[in-house]
Design a protein around this nucleic acid. Structure first.
Lengths: 132, 132, 132, 132
DNA sequence: GTGGTCTAGACCACA
DNA sequence: GTGGTCTAGACCACA
């Protein structure tokens, strides 16, 4: 469901948060849908339940999900409108950062376009897929 | 010379390392050029000298610079060939990550291209310069 | 577990590294064995945790151990083959240095052999054990 | 005259001190012989004059040499008796340390003897010589 | 002045 | 509890 990278510096709870926001953005998770339980998701991702709990806690405080004690967590009604606000800003930032790194190493615009194309191509190839 | 973001998750020493690798890649720092002293760079970046020292130490153990005690650190002769090896891998990884995030949020290839173009445009505008 | 000399010029973090490499070489630490926690080892050796952390960090970057955040550090699977490569070189260097010092003071080969024998004897004597 | 290693952790001034003590021990430098001037030795060893100055200063305070202001430094009359006292202790310590390192890595006595022999052999070979 | 090591101690991510 | 990063600051080797 969600992919986690343990290399790199992005905290796991952050990757989980983004994974879930992504699902909401994609419509895979819709308003009032239940999220997997903390334990289930933790064992699926092979991470500590505390880590998932932190992701859920922050998603709740940002308004994307609500947690009913003793029950489960659910996607909030207004989640998709919240996502819309955040999505553009988030994606822009991600690419801004990537391009900024590329420029630090002296890549020209045209080279950046070439890299992006080659990365997009790499993802099309069946068998390679979305994985990583 | 180098920009540091204290938001975000990338450690400062890592940003310094990448900043310097970038300078070498750009040719701003050439073989045998001296690096700024640890103390100077630390005060310029407003970070602790130990943090710069760690960046330099790791750059040395990776072969990019050599340090002469009591003198300074210098770019190694083979630094640019080392950089060439690392540059492509690093940039690929950065864009792979960005595109991966975008796909999580359901962006199509064409939308990704549009974002990249708009980010590239934003950087061209003089005076605006997108910060950093 | 590991002995540290604060006299002499070898940095503490280096002595810790060598101590652990020695344990791996001896088979006292085997693949996948956990290392003592940074804090525990630091308090045992009466050094600052940062110093142990540096030793562990360098051992990790040299491939001898891996660290799982929040958990512990573990001996890597290939550690013993790495050690084998390094052991001979390290020991050779150590004796090369010792003999080189002896020659500076004019010791003949036969005298060097005698010294080595006497040092080996000194270590056999139970109860005396040559300190350290 | 004296060999310096800039790799390794032993300070240069210490290596210079030992080099000179060695010369005295060997009889190459005899009582009342003049030492090379600080500047000369520094340029010969390609080190900073301050470093040589420190070595001389410590040799003086240990009684091996005397420095006459404006003139040069000379080997003291009692230098060789001082050396005799120190030589055995120093050499013992050097081998004790080497053997101790070897034992940390699990070498048996017989293996240590073999290493010592092979190192002694390596030094006999003409063309390789004392250098390093 | 320049780099290297070390300590003390804080704060954070993760288990 | 365990590792990771960072700061502040001391002290040393060397130029």
């Amino acid at each position: 469901m969600i992919t986690i990278e343990t290399t790199g510096f992005i905290p796991i709870y952050e990757q989980i948060k983004n994974g879930i926001k992504g699902k909401i953005s994609l419509g895979v998770l819709k308003a009032n849908d239940p999220l997997p339980s903390i334990r289930d998701l933790a064992s699926e991702l092979v991470v500590n339940p505390n880590t998932v709990a932190r992701a859920y806690r922050e998603l709740e405080s940002e308004g994307f999900i609500t947690t009913r004690k003793g029950k489960a967590s659910f996607v909030t009604d207004n989640s998709s409108s919240l996502i819309k606000q955040e999505r553009q800003r988030f994606i822009d930032e991600v690419f801004e950062r990537a391009i900024s790194e590329a420029r630090k190493f002296g890549l020209e615009e045209e080279e950046i376009r070439t890299i992006v194309e080659s990365r997009l191509k790499a993802r099309q190839k069946p068998g390679r897929g979305e994985g990583r």
